[in-house]
Computed example of a mutant assay.
Amino acid sequence: MTDTLALLKHRRSVPPQFLAAPGPSEAQLAELLAIAARVPDHGKLVPWRFIVFAGEGKVKAAERVAEVFRKRTPDAPEDKVTFERNRLLHAPLVVAVVSRARKHEKIPVWEQELSAGATCFNLLIAAEAMGFAGSWLTNWFSFDREVLRAFGVAEEERIAGFVHIGTPQTRPADRERPDMAAIVSHFGA
C-alpha cells in the first residue's frame, strides 16, 4: 500500500523527447494494456480500445502525420515538418486510447468518455510501476480526421490520448500543485 501511495504521490509526466529505449517488451505491453483496461466501466460497454504504435508502424504513422501537416501548411519550413513527424518518434512506444463512447439508454456518453480517460491514466500508472515513464498527450492530429482515418479510427470514435512510454532519460522537477483549500469544499459545512 505504501508503495502505491508513493508512486501516486511522486508520479510525474516525462515529455516524449526524454523517453528512450528500452520500452516495454511484448509481454510487458500485454500486461500494461490489461491493467489499463481495469477501469470503471458502467454497463461493461468497453467504450475504448487501443492502437499500438511501435517499430516500423510508428515510423509509418509519423510519416502520415508529416504528410498531412505538410498538406495543411504548405508554407511550413522543413524543420517544422520534421518537428511534427517527430512527435510520434521520440518514445519507443506510443499507445493511442480511442474513445468509442456511444449513445446508450442507461449510460451517458460523458461517463463512457471518463472511462476512456481513466484508461489513459491507468496506463501511465502501470508504466511507472514497471519502471518506465510516460506522457498522456493530444496534439492537432488527435482531431484531424484524415490522420485518424489513416490510423484506423472510425468517424464516430475520438482519441482520448496518445500515451508515450519509455525509459526516462531525465525526470522533470515537480510542478506547482493546486492549493487544496481553493479546490476542496465540504457540503453542509
Rank of each mutant, 00 (worst) to 15 (best):
Met1Tyr: 04
Thr4His: 08
Leu5Met: 07
Ala6Thr: 10
Leu7Arg: 09
Lys9Val: 00
Arg11Glu: 05
Arg12Cys: 14
Ser13Gln: 07
Val14Trp: 08
Pro16Ser: 13
Pro16Tyr: 12
Gln17Trp: 08
Phe18Ser: 14
Gly23Arg: 00
Gln28Glu: 15
Leu29Gly: 02
Ala30Ile: 02
Leu32Pro: 05
Ala36Arg: 06
Ala36Trp: 07
Ala37Ile: 01
Val39Thr: 10
Pro40Thr: 07
Asp41Lys: 04
Gly43Asn: 05
Val46Asp: 08
Phe50Tyr: 11
Ile51Pro: 00
Phe53Tyr: 07
Glu56Met: 04
Lys60Asp: 11
Ala61Ile: 00
Ala61Leu: 00
Ala62Asn: 11
Glu63Pro: 00
Arg64Glu: 12
Phe69Ile: 00
Phe69Ser: 04
Arg70Cys: 00
Lys71Ala: 14
Pro74Ile: 06
Asp79Ser: 12
Thr82Trp: 01
Phe83Gln: 15
Glu84Lys: 05
Leu88Ala: 09
Leu89Cys: 09
His90Val: 02
Ala91Pro: 03
Pro92Gln: 03
Leu93Gly: 02
Val95Asn: 06
Ala96Asn: 01
Val97Ala: 10
Ser99Leu: 05
Arg100Thr: 13
Lys103Ser: 14
Glu105Met: 06
Lys106Phe: 11
Pro108Glu: 02
Val109Asp: 05
Trp110Arg: 09
Trp110Lys: 02
Glu111Trp: 01
Glu113Asp: 12
Gly117Val: 02
Thr119Cys: 15
Cys120Tyr: 04
Cys120Arg: 08
Cys120Gln: 06
Phe121Arg: 01
Asn122Leu: 06
Leu124Trp: 07
Leu124Glu: 13
Ala126Met: 14
Glu128Gly: 12
Glu128Arg: 13
Met130Gly: 10
Gly131Asn: 09
Phe132Trp: 04
Gly134Gln: 10
Gly134Lys: 07
Leu137Cys: 15
Thr138Pro: 12
Thr138Lys: 11
Asn139Trp: 03
Phe141His: 14
Phe143His: 15
Leu148Phe: 04
Arg149Pro: 00
Ala150Arg: 03
Gly152His: 13
Ala154Cys: 07
Ala154Leu: 15
Glu157Asn: 11
Ile159Met: 11
Ile159Cys: 09
Gly161Ala: 15
Phe162Glu: 12
Val163Met: 08
Val163Thr: 01
Val163Tyr: 10
Val163Pro: 05
Ile165Ser: 02
Gly166Ser: 09
Gly166Ala: 08
Pro168Glu: 09
Arg171Ala: 14
Pro172Ser: 14
Asp174Met: 15
Asp174Ser: 14
Arg175Lys: 15
Glu176Asn: 04
Pro178Ser: 06
Ala181Thr: 14
Val184Trp: 07
Ser185Tyr: 03
Ser185Phe: 05
His186Asp: 07
Phe187Glu: 10
Ala189Lys: 12
